[in-house]
Amino acid sequence: MVCKGCFLTALGEIKCFIELAVQNKLSSSDSGIPVADNKGREPPKHKLSESVRDDVKKHIQSFPEYESHYSRKTKTKKYLPSHLNHTKMYEIYKTGSAIPRFSAKDMGKNKTVLEEHQTSAEDEYEKKREEKDKAKVNPSYKVFSFDLQQCLPFPYLNTSVSFYKRQLRVFNLTSHDCATKEVKCFMWHEGIANRGANNIASCLVKLTDNLPRDVKHAVFYSDTCPGKNLNSHVAVMFSCALQRITILQYIGHEFMVPGHTHLECDYDHSAIERQRKKTPVEIAHPRD
């Protein structure tokens, strides 16, 4: 005989569990070994059948898949079109069928690293602001931001039929003059070329070749995507531009801190997206 409270505490069990165990033992055979219960022997009532699960998988796989906006050498992950979401996919399914975050503990461990990261990001933003102010008063000084917009699907249709079609992907590299706010868009589709480092460098060649004749100092800001910006192709292109354009004395390429890459051309991309959604006619061709 032992104290019930001490017994429950020592085993870390509750009163109901012990009572059920005793009841099973008393109702079992003469051996004193409790009979096995029937829990977990039958599938849950809410579990979907294999046929329904297969239908759902086929429905998901029926949508076209695309590579990431940020290209990598090893491309394993595929993504759905940007205009799709779970709600739309479920609505389409119903019409055709019957049926990285960090914890507070982690942040505490990496508080110093986080503070250094935020300080570096703010320093880079401050440096860009100083460069912009200098460009506004000095015509021989230019500061640009450039970035590749997320792929634009063509034709741009709002019907559910278009969700199942392989659409043409159109690329748009946007450059933004931080002093004059002049915007230039370099557009091409996947039938013409890809969106790798050479393609980005080709657009920047056109941008540097059309700089005003009195520009002696040019600085370019971008994110750190290695497939497009942070690579030897773009670096060599800027080096060649310095040799080709004799009046240019300096070309700088600054990279924003990962996770803090908000640039002026992001506003231009937002404006394009807003206008595209408000367009009263269907966009059936890149020229539209």
Rank of each mutant, 00 (worst) to 15 (best):
S71G: 12
Y70L: 11
H69L: 08
D54R: 11
K77N: 04
K94V: 13
N85M: 04
R72C: 10
V56Q: 01
T112E: 11
H86F: 03
S82L: 15
H46P: 00
L84Y: 06
L84V: 03
L114W: 06
K47H: 07
F63G: 00
G108C: 03
S49I: 05
T95P: 00
Y93W: 07
A98I: 08
A104W: 10
G96D: 05
E116H: 10
R41D: 06
I99L: 06
D55Q: 13
K57D: 07
P44F: 05
K73C: 11
H83C: 01
K57C: 06
M107G: 05
K94T: 10
T112F: 04
Y90A: 05
R101Q: 10
S62R: 04
E42K: 11
L114N: 11
L114V: 08
K111E: 12
Y90P: 00
Y70R: 09
E50A: 09
A104K: 15
T95K: 08
I99C: 08
V52P: 01
A104G: 04
E67C: 12
N110L: 15
E65K: 15
S71A: 14
R53N: 07
V113A: 15
V113S: 11
Y93V: 01
E42N: 06
P100H: 03
K88E: 05
K78F: 00
D54L: 12
S68L: 02
G40D: 02
Y66Q: 08
Q61C: 10
A98E: 14
Y66K: 12
S62G: 03
M89N: 01
K73S: 14
H46T: 10
K78R: 13
I92R: 05
K94G: 05
D106E: 14
K47M: 08
A98P: 02
G108S: 08
E42P: 00
T87K: 14
S51T: 15
R101M: 10
M89Y: 01
E67T: 14
K109F: 10
L80M: 07
L80D: 00
H69V: 09
P81N: 06
S97D: 01
M89S: 02
K105T: 11
S97F: 12
E115I: 15
T87H: 08
Y90F: 09
V113L: 11
S62Y: 06
G108H: 05
K94N: 08
Y70P: 00
P64L: 02
L48R: 09
N85L: 02
K88T: 07
R101P: 00
H86G: 02
E91W: 02
F63Q: 03
G40Q: 01
K45V: 11
F63H: 03
S82Q: 14
F102P: 00
G96W: 01
P43Q: 05
S71I: 15
E91P: 02
